[in-house]
């Protein structure tokens, strides 16, 4: 279970150097199977995910994982406690191969058969990819899917995916959802998905709607979906995508 208490995050605006409030007083408890976070571009979704993973330090507030205060824990410590994070923009590495990265993620030198099954889960043929470098030769979509495979390899009990749908060009939503389901079967943990996609929101047990750094509303899918799709159109970006 993840609990955010009064989380605020301020940063300096790069243009004028003024302090801006990117997240304001966010209170959130997450314990369901699938939790979707949605909201317009710039509403603070990625910032929230980075705060949970330890990449950004909140200006105020506390973070609890299964009752333990992890606010002061490093990225590495949180990873070891079982927080996994698939980036919105995956990182490239010169010379590091898909196999290297999946082995690091799994925490051990991983057998070819295991790597093969992880890659096939995300729609990639292992034979073509294991020895490929994670460099500019891979497309954005391929990188996104390798990013997802890494989180599968980690077997994280809290897995965060930042807009995973961006990688499914030649793959399918159905397969992506199957990955989430399979992961939950294995970890029995929580899967937090930042997404604009109705098909992903449709599998969520809980939906969190962020707007301008604040939680506009949160609740079950049945409670939130009608508002998202309804006449009020609280979220233009979302409406554009649906």
């Amino acid at each position: 279970m993840l609990e955010l208490r009064n989380i605020s995050f301020q940063a300096e605006n790069e243009d004028d150097g003024k302090e801006i409030e990117i997240l304001r007083n966010v209170n959130l408890t997450i314990e369901d199977r699938f939790v979707a976070v949605t909201g317009p571009n710039g509403s603070g979704k990625s910032t929230l995910a980075k705060i949970v993973a330890g990449i950004l330090t909140p200006t105020e507030g506390q973070i609890f994982l299964d009752g333990t205060d992890i606010t002061d824990k490093s990225i590495t410590e949180r990873a070891k406690l079982g927080i996994g994070f698939a980036f919105q923009q995956p990182v490239r590495f010169k010379g590091i191969t898909v196999k290297d990265l999946l082995s690091i993620a799994a925490g051990k030198d991983t057998a070819m058969s295991e790597i093969c099954s992880m890659l096939s889960e995300v729609g990639l043929c292992a034979r073509d990819y294991v020895n490929r470098e994670i460099n500019a030769s891979l497309s954005g979509g391929e990188l996104k899917r390798i990013e997802i495979a890494m989180i599968m390899a980690r077997k994280s009990r809290l897995a965060i995916f930042d807009e995973p749908e961006a990688g499914i060009d030649l793959w399918s939503f159905q397969s992506l959802i199957r990955v989430f389901e399979k992961m939950h079967e294995q970890t029995k943990g929580t899967i937090l998905i930042i997404s604009h996609q109705e098909r992903i929101l449709n599998i969520a047990d809980q939906i969190v709607l962020l707007s301008d750094g604040r939680i506009e509303k949160t609740g079950s899918r049945e409670e939130i979906m009608p508002d998202l799709l309804g006449a009020g159109q609280p979220c233009r970006t979302l409406a554009d995508k649906l």
């Binding site: 990449i55 490093s74 590495t76 990873a79 010379g95 690091i104 980690r154």
Partner: peptide
């Protein structure tokens, strides 16, 4: 940061990047 989210310390991450 990416390698640290995979459980490596900063030093271990640095080594992996240099070796690669």
């Amino acid at each position: 940061i990416k390698l640290m989210t995979l459980g490596l310390t900063e030093k271990e991450a640095e080594e992996q990047i240099v070796n690669g």
